[in-house]
């Protein structure tokens, strides 16, 4: 590309013409994205400081930080913030570990590998409503496979209503999310593993390093640059999960599965308190940014003070 630009025919005039062309080509996309993201984001920011009249569709009055003050003093809100962070962390830890193990398996040679890969990728295309229905039926109190299996094995003495317990329900939702999140991360890990030079492993096994030494000294450090971004992305995606919660528990029982995203939905579209919902949406945005930025900043600081990674 640089060769093309540095050709003598590219005068100063043509150079700027290429810039104009480049902008024209990307402009429609940028306009659409700005209309549907930036303007709404500003709108949300403005009404997070206001009371919004849902009937007349306009701002009633500005109330400064009242929305935020209300949220912070609200037990449901603070508990849903903590729950969201726990939920996101749980999902991304489990997904990362399981996906990595599955990717290690798929990196080996065996019969039926292509078939297994299709089976592993499949849950990604499953709409989360379907996965909600599916796991709901799995854990169903009357007809679920889990109850039947555990009952016949004699683990439980009677059929349990799994989704009636807030803590169990939260973990059932987490299982559904993990099952859906595994395919994509596995593919990314697999492509990372395949891009590693095989000489490294051969050299290590000649030197007599066992499986665990090879893992902790070679594979783990090499995969870390791939694993960290995937981990963070999964964290962020898990925190904005909505569909499974909506289908399985509707945030219940007793608000036990209300994550922040669901809390915002309820405030906005069930009680129609758009101001409060917007304020909560900005809290979610801040948490999301913190998740992404804290590792980046801490790495930068470590580099700055100790001069290494």
């Amino acid at each position: 590309m640089t060769d093309l630009l540095n050709q003598p025919s590219n005068s100063q005039f043509k150079f700027s013409r290429e810039k104009i062309l480049a902008f024209t080509l990307i402009l429609p996309s940028l306009i659409l994205v700005f209309i549907t993201y930036l303007y709404p984001a500003i709108f949300t920011f403005v009404i997070s400081f206001a009371e919004y009249d849902i009937i007349r569709l306009k701002i009633k009055k500005f109330i400064q930080f009242k929305n935020f003050e209300f949220l912070i003093s609200n037990y449901f809100f603070t508990s849903s913030v903590l729950r969201t962070i726990y939920f996101g962390f749980l999902i991304c830890v489990c997904t990362t570990i399981l996906s990595f193990l599955i990717a290690l398996l798929l990196n080996e040679k065996f019969i039926g590998k292509a078939f297994l890969r299709v089976m592993i990728v499949l849950p990604w295309a499953v709409p989360s409503v379907v996965s909600g229905v599916l796991w709901g039926q799995m854990f169903h109190a009357d007809t679920g496979f889990l109850n039947a299996l555990l009952y016949q094995l004699g683990v439980i003495s009677g059929y349990k209503i799994w989704l009636a317990d807030p803590l169990v329900a939260l973990h059932v939702i987490a299982i559904a999310e993990i099952w859906k999140a595994i395919p994509f991360m596995t593919l990314f890990f697999l492509s990372g593993l395949q891009s590693l030079p095989s000489e490294v492993f051969e050299a290590a096994s000649v030197d007599g390093a066992n499986v665990f030494q090879r893992f902790s000294n070679i594979l783990f450090p090499l995969m870390l640059p791939i694993a960290i971004p995937l981990f963070l992305i999964q964290f962020v995606l898990a925190m904005k999960s909505f569909d499974t919660i909506f289908v399985l528990t509707r945030g219940g029982p007793g608000g036990g599965t209300t994550t922040l995203n669901y809390f915002i939905y309820q405030e906005a579209f069930e009680t129609f308190n758009l101001g409060r919902a917007s304020a909560a949406a900005y809290v979610l945005l801040i948490i999301t940014l913190a998740v992404v930025l804290i590792p980046t900043i801490s790495r930068f600081l470590m580099k700055f003070f100790w001069g290494n990674k």
Binding site: S29, P40, F242, L284, L285
Partner: peptide, 20 residues
């Protein structure tokens, strides 16, 4: 910027879009 928008909470944009 474009890629990071994808990971922001959807609900942030949905509220005003609904109003519009």
């Amino acid at each position: 910027t474009l890629i990071s928008i994808y990971f922001l909470p959807t609900i942030l944009f949905v509220i005003p879009l609904f109003v519009i």
